[in-house]
Design a protein around this nucleic acid. Structure first.
Lengths: 126, 126
DNA sequence: ATCTAATGTTTACAGCTGTAGCCAGCGAGC
DNA sequence: GCTCGCTGGCTACAGCTGTAAACATTAGAT
């Protein structure tokens, strides 16, 4: 159980850029976030460095600069984060979370339709 | 939109005690956590104080000590936390999260049964 | 009236996070 | 070969978090 790298909020914003398009240079990451966040280039550099140090991304030298890529799939991160939340708040299981949403009337028609669809797929699979 | 008090990990452990049983004195909170976490009494005191300062709990004087109670329902906190995660990771919608779990084969039979049940309730309601 | 035990209040301190400036090296152009 | 700009690396610094000790106060015991 490899203690799994922990990614902070701001770092995850950078990760999302890399998951969208990589390998990618600092400059491009800065550009990609120019409008979304209002970060100085230094800030992005720091975040990239921290991610690099904790092994969340890899760098390959290309001429005078580095090209960065994620060290693992977004899917994996999604799983880790979701599971952490489920563990913390809902005893590790999904259904109670869904129930919570349904009780607080936060399910859209679309959500319901999609859930129904997912369930049906399960029925077909077996 | 009342910026909603943010509760840290350790603080949430204390909140959970209060949500289970309150009003309750420091001593009892310490006792309740004695086995779960290995915190010194000081640590619990600090956390209670921080929660008090940020308005997450209330204190009523009783003799020489205080009895603490949560300032809001656990349900509300669950909603806030869950929504934050959904927003951050799944575009704010529930179905994609469920889909993610289903794709990564993390749904137990029990989960599926319960989801099916929830969906059926929705069908009946309308 | 004094001492002591319990409880609350203040202070501490290292590590993580958000945010960013400054310096240094190196490659391209003059 | 020298200089300038790009890019990376180091430093900074305040606020939050986990963890806790030290100190102050006060009600009750003697």
């Amino acid at each position: 159980m490899k203690a799994s790298i922990s990614i902070s909020e701001a770092e995850s914003v950078v990760m999302n850029v890399l998951w969208t398009r990589s390998p990618i240079a600092t400059e491009e990451v800065v550009a990609a976030l120019k409008h979304k966040e209002s970060w100085q280039p230094s800030t992005v550099k720091t975040l990239l460095n921290r991610l690099l140090n904790k092994g969340a991304i890899r760098a390959r030298k290309e001429g005078r600069r580095y090209l960065y890529s994620p060290a693992f799939e977004r899917e994996r991160w999604l799983s880790e984060e979701s599971n952490a939340l489920l563990d913390r708040l809902f005893g590790g299981r999904l259904a109670p979370l869904v129930a919570h949403f349904s009780q607080s009337r936060r399910l859209s028609k679309r959500d319901i339709a999609e859930l129904r669809h997912l369930i049906r797929e399960f029925d077909n699979e077996r």
